[in-house]
Design a protein around this nucleic acid. Sequence first.
DNA 1: ATAATAAATGAAAACGCTTACATATTTTGG
DNA 2: CCAAAATATGTAAGCGTTTTCATTTATTAT
Lengths: 330, 330
Amino acid sequence: MNIYEVAKKAGVSIATVSRVINKSSNVRPETRERVEAALKELNYRPNEIARSLVANTTHTIGVLASDVRDSYHANAIYILEQEFRKKGYHVILCNTGGELEKKKRYMGLLLDKKVDGMVLVGSVFKERKGNSHILDASQVVPIVMLNSLLEGENIYCVACDDKAAVSDIVQSLVQRGHREIAFVYDVESFSAMAKLEGYRFGMQAAELPIRPEWIIRTESGIDGGRNAVNIMDAGGAACTAVIASEDNLAAGILKGLKAKGKKVPEDVAVFGYNDSVIARCTGPELSTVDNKVGELAREAAGMLCRVLQGEKISHSKTITAELVFRESCP
Amino acid sequence: MNIYEVAKKAGVSIATVSRVINKSSNVRPETRERVEAALKELNYRPNEIARSLVANTTHTIGVLASDVRDSYHANAIYILEQEFRKKGYHVILCNTGGELEKKKRYMGLLLDKKVDGMVLVGSVFKERKGNSHILDASQVVPIVMLNSLLEGENIYCVACDDKAAVSDIVQSLVQRGHREIAFVYDVESFSAMAKLEGYRFGMQAAELPIRPEWIIRTESGIDGGRNAVNIMDAGGAACTAVIASEDNLAAGILKGLKAKGKKVPEDVAVFGYNDSVIARCTGPELSTVDNKVGELAREAAGMLCRVLQGEKISHSKTITAELVFRESCP
DNA sequence: ATAATAAATGAAAACGCTTACATATTTTGG
DNA sequence: CCAAAATATGTAAGCGTTTTCATTTATTAT
């Protein structure tokens, strides 16, 4: 079933069929009807691959994320897919597992497949000079970075101000009388590093000392959080508040503290990050940061679509996060 | 940059270049080297769209899920993407939001884009005769159903035995002395209905009466769970154990019971489903069902790949779930 | 009615590749 | 050393569209 069969049935040339399909002008109403009848009768649908070949555009966007299972990424991807779909784009999903090599390979494959653009969800690692593949790819298609920053002619960034958010958390904690505040993170992502900066900035702004034992790197997930408590304890780093770079971590910290007989928030206040569903599941419920991932994703998709339509737009946009106070730090 | 330029640079015809690229035989080593040098020098990469057009295969799989944000779906999609990727397939993600119309439209678009196959993650609604679009699509490409069942020549199903799992939960609860057991679910998905059947079956097997007030349909998510507790209370349906069709719901039920001053598991035992990360975040931690979504997804991807390679395989595969006992029903 | 103009249609090239078939070259056996 | 067989290479068609350009048909003005 191709355009030739439709043309034959309608008694016209394939050019005319194509014109009808693409609602191009200069087709006699009578002819149009005949073609449309044939179209319907044969239940014809154009082959998008062939169209892509000639149009040199696939209406497909590559989305790279390190792991969909993470609720932050899942939220981002959901909205991205939804928004792109609305504008007629398909989404090819790539889970990079945070591995640079995989990411490079995937980006190459996506270019081979002629995606019209890419969205990278929080993937740049700060201070590492491993971003040449992104710059290379941006020579071919526009790229939007979601929650990480990279300068480039054809690169657009939309990020949440994580630094400010964590700095605000510190300030709130100080207002509540806390002076010994720890910061726990897992991977050294761009955004985790921004949060760490925010922690440092906030502590300095409050003229509080920062003890190295208060800055703890641990594994990801609940177990990582639980472990962080052990590390703190072993390091003798007493503190009255803990900020985690992620809700999962915070949930683990809650467990860890409970195991040590510490009460939250009475003995230790805990702050998470992401405002994921987890934050409302824990007991006590987690105070956390709504980092507006939906808004970010919507903005990212919008930016890419606008760029693809030839619009000139600003290269970066920052969104302000919002602190959400719940039981773990009321 | 296309195959002609490579051919010119290497001083051969495009056919020879194509043969080198595709590692086809009958190329003189000397020629091959010359072509490979040109390939490298020009940094040539074949246009996959053009290849797809002639080969009539895109190495792309469409994956439809109602909502990636749901951890069950996220897990499924993660593994699906990973497994397909290993075999050289890309994944186009479609979030249907559980809407039939959307699903139909997406399936059409995927066929237009010439995907090689599709995976539908838990989407068939039982008893509703709205599955003709799936049967239609299966005339064109093989379809794998993840956690729902549908018969068809070119349709393959891999599902977890949800009925047995819930029936097992009931049995475990009965062994622990429970006789008044409620079942809470949200959407009327295929799998939720299987669970409900399992509940009924388990109760009957234990020769316990089933009161209609014990079967509660509520909204999705934590709030739905909390609300279910109110509904039960209002209905005067006292019970000593609650089985939820989903961990989120169970988490809400925990909250609801706490609000009513009931202790878990002392006053009421609670069982979730999915063994999502949530189940380990709540306090008390949730007893739940590990329904092996990873295994399911791996199997689904494997089946589809085998079918695409022309293998004849069995049309359905069932995996047995495993009960996970934690604090909410020790 | 006819020339000039506008509108409708079709033929063919192009997109970038693979592949069947034809042709040229090398290798082998007698 | 030559014919036959095997191997290497090239030519051209084809995948299913869109689109340019030429041609045909309809419309308008004179």
